[in-house]
């Protein structure tokens, strides 16, 4: 055991060193900053203060936090509702399965900024949708499609839908078909089989999909930034501006730490309710 211990940590030490130095320590440092005092010109005064948290929960920013949670949650649920039947179809499409899956991988790997840009072409005031609607006489003035919560949620769904599809697909594909046959042999109809066998067995995929969709959806700043030019805000926008514009590191750090806690909690929940072989659904 002792020898194993030494060898294991010898192999692990380079990556543990890297992750500690460039991930754990910086994040802990952020945690410390969030409890310091903001001095003139953004200076950090190392005196204990919870000002950043009072600010984060003040009416101004609390609204942004709630609206981020709300939009990200709606987008995640829409993704789930769309992704499940879609993944189910792909997993059951026989020889076309691989090709269809690769057609999901293309948007998955294409840069988010480019995919959001594609919607700007469609939705902006001189965009395709508005032009068509005006040409056909449905509307007189262009609709502010991008500048609305609906536009932001659409951007989130479009951006992160592949994140939901892939883990659900994996879990459906790994499903042992004999359970389904057993259920039908025992007299359950398709709906009952789906609700009592398929759905519970693919739950790890749903959980993984939920986490890896919700986390980027709540923290992304480019959707609101590119679609609304900063008129609508999410937590990510506030963090970015706190660090780069307002020099209020404490506020940015406090909000980052809140996001971090949310992520660690969801990771713990995931690890608690899934087995080791399900963990690779996250990747």
């Amino acid at each position: 055991m002792r020898k194993n211990f030494e060898k294991a940590y010898l192999l692990l030490s380079p990556s543990l060193f890297w992750l500690t130095l460039f991930l754990v320590i910086p994040v802990l440092f952020i945690a410390v900053i969030s409890f310091t005092t903001n001095g003139d010109f953004g200076a950090i005064i190392y005196e204990f203060s919870t000002d950043a948290y009072s600010a984060a929960f003040s009416s101004l920013y609390a609204k942004v936090i709630w609206q981020s949670i709300w939009w990200a949650l709606i987008a995640t649920i829409v993704c789930l509702v769309v992704a499940y039947p879609f993944a189910y179809f792909i997993a059951n499409s026989g020889k076309w399965k691989n090709l269809l899956l690769l057609l999901v991988m293309v948007p998955f790997w294409t840069n988010l900024l480019i995919r959001l840009y594609a919607w700007i072409i469609l939705m902006n005031n001189q965009g395709v949708i508005n032009n068509v609607l005006m040409d056909w006489g449905f509307i007189k003035e262009p609709l502010a499609l991008m500048y609305s919560p609906g536009g932001v949620i659409l951007g989130l769904v479009y951006g992160f839908l592949p994140f939901m599809i892939l883990p659900i697909y994996s879990s459906i594909e790994q499903l042992d078909k004999t359970y389904l046959e057993a259920s039908e042999d025992l007299g359950a109809g398709p709906v009952r089989t789906f609700l009592h066998v398929t759905l519970p067995l693919t739950f790890p995929g749903i959980l993984a999909g939920f986490i890896i969709t919700f986390v980027p959806a709540i923290s992304v700043f480019v959707v609101t930034d590119l679609f609304t030019g900063g008129k609508l805000l999410m937590v990510g926008n506030v963090i970015r501006d706190a660090f780069l514009v307002e020099m209020n590191w404490q506020l940015g750090a406090a909000l980052s730490l809140l996001l971090m806690i949310l992520v660690l909690l969801s990771l713990m929940i995931f690890m608690r309710f899934t087995s080791r072989k399900d963990r690779k659904l996250l990747v």
């Binding site: 991930l23 910086p26 994040v27 440092f29 952020i30 986490i211 890896i212 986390v215 980027p216 709540i218 923290s219 992304v220 700043f221 990510g236 963090i239 970015r240 660090f243 940015g252 750090a253 980052s256 996001l259 971090m260 992520v263 969801s266 990771l267 996250l282």
Partner: peptide
């Protein structure tokens, strides 16, 4: 799972 913005600002 960590949001990239947290790594970035840290």
């Amino acid at each position: 799972v960590i949001p990239d913005i947290v790594v970035a600002v840290a």
